[in-house]
Design a protein around this nucleic acid. Structure first.
Lengths: 172, 172
DNA sequence: CTTTTTAATCAGGTCCCCCTGACTAAAATT
DNA sequence: AATTTTAGTCAGGGGGACCTGATTAAAAAG
């Protein structure tokens, strides 16, 4: 049975980390007011970008299924991304009902820099701490995957598979 | 100079942590479909709640200034919170232009449980790991505070003060 | 060669975050 | 007393994440 006090401390720091990181992001975005430069996280348009950068050239339907979205929502997000020149739409030649979505160069770059960037604050850690941090996060992630599978056994492992796939490139 | 490989590993795990945590939250919310039960993070209405739980009885103007919002946005969020019975509005007796915003009991509870809950996934860590995690996060937070102060020297230390104040209760 | 299924689209809606502009009521100044 | 500043309000708008319902075009099946 882990020490409750220690858990509480860690939890507090984690919350703090979330808050401070959020405000840091906010300030960073306030400064270089690059017009369209938005966060794009793991929702909506961002989700689509992520999925494509892991598996380009999907149809809208496939995207929708994979991301647990309705086709209409998917269409909306895709259209918004097209307007921003991050993806392209083209009719499939083999099945002309389908619309194939592909990342543009800009889209790929965006998706990559969105995630595949070592945050500066990691410079504050020594090698030993980095190792500790990595191993701790590995444990936490495993625990979360468990939680997800327990809550939604229907697609057990699917989430983990998706995330792992997506992260694979990034580690090479 | 820290090992780049190790940094990259840690960064990857951190990103993964973010993603998995997000989907875990999503699923958790999907399950108990308690109607009004929304996330309420560090934006909009959530921000207001946080600010109040740290310093109750502020005027709308003070809230707006403190949170870097326009008074109109602030009014909007406050009104929404009033509808949810999380805060109350009352005219100040000393200056009848001012509207004082106060947390209701429900509001305080909500603000607290919003943050002050030890996430289950921390159970996956041993005492030693918890200590390591805490000390690493402390370092990361410090680094982020630095980043914020550098980028926005105007209000140097203000963010940290606010966050620290807010977290104080939670640690006792 | 008709049904039926499938991939998309349009229309319209809900709720969230956040802003500008115009206007009122109450203090503070002059 | 007249003016200006201050705290709020209303109206309206832009974007974002999602959804349901109705309809069309193309492929698959009967």
């Amino acid at each position: 049975m882990p020490n409750l006090e220690k858990q509480k401390n860690a939890a507090g720091k984690l919350i703090e980390f979330g808050m401070v990181r959020h405000t840091a992001d906010e300030i960073a975005h306030r400064n270089h007011t690059d017009k369209g430069e938005r966060p794009l996280r793991f929702q909506g348009q961002g989700k689509i970008l992520l999925a494509l950068s892991q598996d380009d050239g999907l149809s809208q339907k496939e995207l929708a299924t994979r991301l647990n979205l309705t086709v209409q929502s998917t269409a909306e997000f895709v259209n918004k991304l097209v307007k921003k020149d991050l993806v392209t739409k083209e009719k499939s030649t083999t099945d002309r009902r389908k619309t194939i979505i592909r990342l543009t160069d800009l889209g790929r770059t965006t998706a990559d820099t969105e995630t595949a960037k070592v945050p500066e604050f990691l410079n504050a850690l020594t090698d030993t701490e980095l190792d500790q941090f990595t191993s701790i996060l590995t444990k936490l992630n495993a625990s979360l995957y468990d939680e997800i599978d327990t809550a939604d056994a229907s697609q057990s492992g699917k989430v983990q598979q998706a995330v792992t796939d997506w992260l694979r490139d990034w580690f090479l």
